[in-house]
Design a protein around this nucleic acid. Structure first.
Length: 994
DNA sequence: CTACTCACG
DNA sequence: GACGTACGTGAGTAGC
């Protein structure tokens, strides 16, 4: 306990599940390349889909087609290793040009590269000669294909390829999907087949094409120009013409001119074929009649399949910041020096530029584990070399460097762990590998009046200099658990933005991964795993236990090594994780859900909630009296004095000394004395058991709540400030700690008194808004269960409806059983579990499960499909694309496997619920502000509940806004087939608001 | 540091 | 025939 108060925030240890699982926190970064400064502001812009956003514009790059053209048009360049890279160079310059268009008003907001997978497709089944006459690609083009993927990755862009589908079909499918939602689409290709897709779409989207080589836009007039017909008739023209390259037969003797003329005159292919017999006799008439079937086949071959399943959702193509380092590494590796020069500027240029010509390393990624090795161009981390910034001129230089880079990793050091109470001791910055510094600001400010105070810049002055950088829209601030730094800096009047958080990025990529235990997302662990680097530990500079010192007392050389390293590590982690988000489909959940939440949570934590200390103290006293009374009675009945709180001693007293039956020992050889055991004993007339149960309840309430909460009141604010973890729960839920405000009692009358101690300020009230039955509603939607959907649509009592379906009648008993079964479903059912809960035999439980599946057939299908998906891909997904990994789904150990299966069934439902309330939270403040309710404060989140504090007079107006934001939180990304019910209550205390 | 117990959704 | 009985958390206490 005493050590805790001295931990630096970045080493903060949260979890105590089993062993100490670290959940770390940190920050770092760096960058260069003035040409890329748009990245930071772009990252900011992409964060939420509410309120107003710029019109979405999706660019789909036909990568495979491009590479062939580039190969033939460019000279045969080779890279320093002698590998031919001419086509790759062409491709790279094309991506570069597109990236430059990001500035333009109609530039891309989303972008994906589509590649051919080079496999057999459905067209080969239609016509086995399809594309059969293609010559093999030239020998010096073959090695360039994989490099296309590298180039794409270097830009951190999404790349799609799917076996059994041609790039054209994927492009058509994405085009249709995007245009239907009203997005604009630009297809970057010159393939005439794709011209079929050009036009205005019913959803409001506008689709055009871009030929980057000719720098030419193709819209309806250009298509008509080329084919003489509008886009929707292009397929008919092509079917008559055929296509020599793809070996589409068409009709022999008909070329572009004749084909166009025939379609213009007849309107479409079928009419043209039907009218053929009426044409004037001749070769054309005969060909049309004879080869009509060939034309029809050709039409099918040319038709684009626009209903393919989209392997990656559109939202994942959101353009985020393009980290310069992977790009610099790639350009350097292949000797693309002119682009490299454009990218890198002055001494902060990517080190990759200096190592051009180094042998290309083996593929560094290990996607199956989520690990990635450091980019080889980086020098090893040298903690001895960091400068300690002690005068203003140096600080200004670092600020300028960060400004030029457009991306800076930031880490704050404080005197204690508590973000709301701790003092700022120093700030570290990093702008690249080997480019990090530490700025001490509060060293020597200790209680030791003889301590030397080292030379450092005045804190207020330094913060004034840093403020413009930290608030600059065009500079991305990267942190490891940057929520902590936001909170600390907010107290100094600095509103840090825009931000990225490597801890949250790691969570969006790797939640649940790792064996035998899931990986943590703390900095030390991430550094070890992704960078192969062992960080300096906080205890190495500050000591541990009673001898630990505050960071303010750490000598500057040690503090500098430690703090600047954290910033540099964070910077490197960002360079590793940012491209992975794009590659692995994590962008959508990160950019649209979790990243916007970081600031929201920081603000909530900063508010805290008022707790009535007197009331808690009174409760503590009452509980203590009752506990003491119970204790003596228990000892008397037991005939011995023992520690009631010791399960070991209690078990021995109950089962050995008093001789009660039903003692079962676990694998540790100890009797179980948990609630269910004691209740059984109590029902058999064991009064001691009843007394112990009451004793347990009261001591739990006293120690965990009435005592601990008083101690948690922040002396400066008079309120309790919990800390939420965004990476605590594998499903995407938040967790709350220090103290945990998500498990305040509510289920029993005596426990609920504790909620009455959570109060509003005078003249204010607390407002509690919670989603009603949200998990069951989402199950009804996700599993597509008509009976449940209907019940929710009509506002029925869902458990009663289930009882009716299962038992044919509704009464207290059947409704209760139905409720149990409904929950069992959400948790991944087993007949034994259900039998235990219902107090029936496993056979009866099984019969009920069967009946449930029969009445609600979607459920069984959902379970089956979810497990297939997880076994196949390793992870489950929520409706919003959040992945949770289940590496033990194929474990040889039955229990492990079964446990993973149950968790996997639950995760999409629990996780979607978490996504929805997170979206609601991210939109809440803007919505309240818009309604003139900017002073309404959101204080707490308890999984399906939000708690606000507001003036009593604003209750009606605020309730309307809150209800609307919560009920519509899934939209527009997901259209739910069930309504989301929100229940709102208000009162002077949390207890009264329920 | 681990196991047990129990508070919440 | 069984995974040893639901999913996800955090925290306090006893005891090695």
């Amino acid at each position: 306990m005493e050590a805790k108060a001295f931990y630096a925030p970045e080493n903060r240890t949260f979890k105590r599940l089993s062993g100490a699982m670290e959940r770390c926190i940190h920050k770092t970064d760096r960058c260069h390349a003035q040409g890329w400064r748009f990245a930071a502001s772009l990252a900011n812009r992409a964060s939420m889909d509410v309120p107003a956003k710029p019109r979405n514009h999706l660019y789909l790059v036909d990568g495979s087609a491009y590479i062939f053209r580039a190969y033939h048009r460019l000279p045969p360049l080779t890279n320093p290793q002698g590998v031919p890279v001419g086509a790759v160079y062409g491709y790279t310059t094309m991506l570069w040009k597109l990236a430059e268009d990001l500035h333009a008003a109609d530039g891309p907001t989303h972008l994906a590269v589509i590649l051919d997978k080079g496999s057999v497709t459905f067209r080969n089944e239609l016509y086995d000669a399809y594309k059969a006459n293609r010559p093999p690609p030239p020998e010096d083009l073959v090695p360039q294909f994989p490099l296309i993927r590298d180039a794409t990755r270097a830009f951190s862009l999404a790349c799609i390829e799917e076996a059994g589908l041609e790039a054209d079909d994927l492009i058509a499918s994405y085009t249709r999907a995007a245009a239907a939602q009203g997005w604009d689409v630009t297809i970057v290709s010159s393939d005439k087949d794709l011209m079929q897709l050009v036009g205005e779409y019913p959803g409001g989207g506008r689709v055009d094409m871009l030929d980057t080589m000719k720098n030419q836009r193709v819209f309806i007039p250009e298509v008509v120009d080329k084919f003489g017909v509008p886009p929707e008739k292009v397929g008919d023209v092509l079917a008559l013409m055929g296509d020599a390259v793809d070996n589409v037969p068409g009709i022999r003797g008909i070329g572009p001119k004749t084909a166009t003329k025939l379609i213009q005159e007849n309107g479409d292919l079928e009419t043209a074929l039907a009218n053929a017999p009426a044409m004037k006799a001749g070769k054309l008439r005969e060909s049309l009649i004879e080869q009509a079937d060939m034309a029809r086949l050709s039409r099918k071959l040319i038709a684009l399949k626009d209903d393919c399943a989209l392997p990656i959702p559109l939202d994942d193509f959101t353009l985020g910041p393009i980290p310069p380092d992977p790009l610099a590494a790639f350009l350097g590796e292949h000797g693309f020096t002119s682009l490299l020069r454009k990218l890198g500027t002055r001494e902060t240029a990517a080190p990759a530029a200096r190592t051009t010509g180094a042998p290309a390393p083996a593929a560094p990624t290990a996607p199956e584990t989520g690990n990635r090795q450091p980019l080889p161009e980086w020098p090893a981390i040298d903690t001895a070399a960091y400068p300690c910034v002690q005068d203003e001129a140096d600080l200004e230089e670092w600020i300028a460097r960060a400004q030029a880079a457009g991306l800076v990793a930031v880490d704050t050091e404080t005197s204690a762990l508590d973000a709301v109470g701790a003092d700022l001791v120093g700030i570290s910055l990093a702008t690249g590998p080997g480019a990090a510094c530490y700025i001490p600001l509060g060293h020597g400010n200790t209680t030791d009046m003889f301590a030397e105070r080292p030379r450092q810049i005045d804190k207020a002055r330094a913060l004034a200099l840093l403020k413009p950088l930290l608030e600059d829209d065009s500079v991305l601030k990267v942190g490891q658990n940057i929520k902590y730094d936001l909170t600390v800096l907010a107290r100094h009047g600095i509103a840090v933005a825009p931000i990225d958080d490597t801890m949250v990025m790691s969570f969006c990529l790797d939640a649940g991964r790792g064996e035998p235990m899931p990986f943590g997302h703390g900095m030390d662990e991430l550094a070890e795993r992704h960078l192969g680097h062992t960080t300096i530990k906080f205890k190495d500079v500050a000591g541990t236990g009673k001898k630990a010192i505050s960071f303010a007392e750490v000598p500057l050389p040690d503090a500098t090594r430690y703090a600047a390293e954290d910033a540099e590590v964070t910077w490197r982690l960002h360079a590793v994780l940012a491209p992975r988000l794009a590659e692995e489909g994590g962008t959508r959940i990160y950019q649209r859900v979790d990243r916007p939440l970081v600031q929201v949570i920081a603000t909530m934590e900063g508010h805290g909630i008022k707790v009535d200390r007197e009331r808690l103290a009174t409760l503590s006293g009452e509980f203590a009296t009752r506990i003491a009374a119970l204790e003596s009675v228990i000892h008397e009945k037991a005939g011995t004095t023992f520690t009631i709180g010791s399960p070991k001693q209690l078990g021995e007293v109950l089962f050995d000394k008093l001789g009660y039956k039903g003692g079962k020992k676990g694998k540790s050889g100890q009797y179980s004395t948990d609630q269910s055991v004691l209740e059984t004993l109590a029902s058999q007339g064991a009064e001691v058991a009843t007394l112990v149960l009451e004793w347990r309840q009261l001591s739990k309430l006293k120690s965990t709540y009435t005592d601990a909460l008083q101690a948690a009141i922040n002396p400066a604010t008079g309120r309790v400030h919990t800390s939420y973890s965004l990476v605590g729960a594998q499903t995407g839920r938040l967790s709350s700690n220090d103290p945990n405000l998500q498990n305040i009692p509510v289920r029993t009358e005596i426990g609920r008194q504790i909620r009455d101690a959570f109060v509003a300020e005078p003249g204010h009230v607390l407002l509690s808004a919670d989603y009603s039955q949200i998990e069951l509603r989402l199950a009804a939607h996700i599993a597509d269960v008509p009976a449940l959907r209907e019940a929710f649509a009509h506002g029925e009592d869902i458990h009663a409806r289930t009882a009716m379906e299962l038992f044919g009648e509704v009464n207290r008993d059947t409704r209760g059983r139905a409720k149990t079964i409904n929950f069992a479903i959400l948790y991944g059912i087993s007949r034994w579990g259900l039998a235990t809960r219902l107090g029936t035999s496993a056979d009866e439980a099984q019969a009920m499960i069967d009946r449930y599946f029969e009445r609600f057939p979607g459920i069984q299908r959902y379970i089956h499909e979810t497990l297939e998906h997880v076994r196949d891909r390793g992870y489950s997904e929520t409706l919003f694309g959040r992945k949770t990994w289940f590496p033990r789904i194929a474990s040889k150990t039955q229990a492990e496997r079964a446990g993973s299966e149950r968790a996997a069934i639950n995760a999409p439902i629990q996780g979607t619920c978490a996504d929805i309330i997170k979206r609601a939270m991210a939109r809440m403040t803007p919505a309240l502000v818009e309604a003139g309710l900017g002073h309404v404060r959101m204080l707490l989140q308890v999984h399906d509940e939000l708690v606000f504090e507001l003036p009593e007079s604003d209750v009606a107006a605020a309730s309307a806004v809150i209800e609307r934001v919560m009920a519509t939180a899934a939209e527009p990304a997901v259209k739910l087939s069930v309504p989301l019910g929100v229940e709102i209550g208000t009162g002077p205390s949390w207890g009264a608001a329920h």
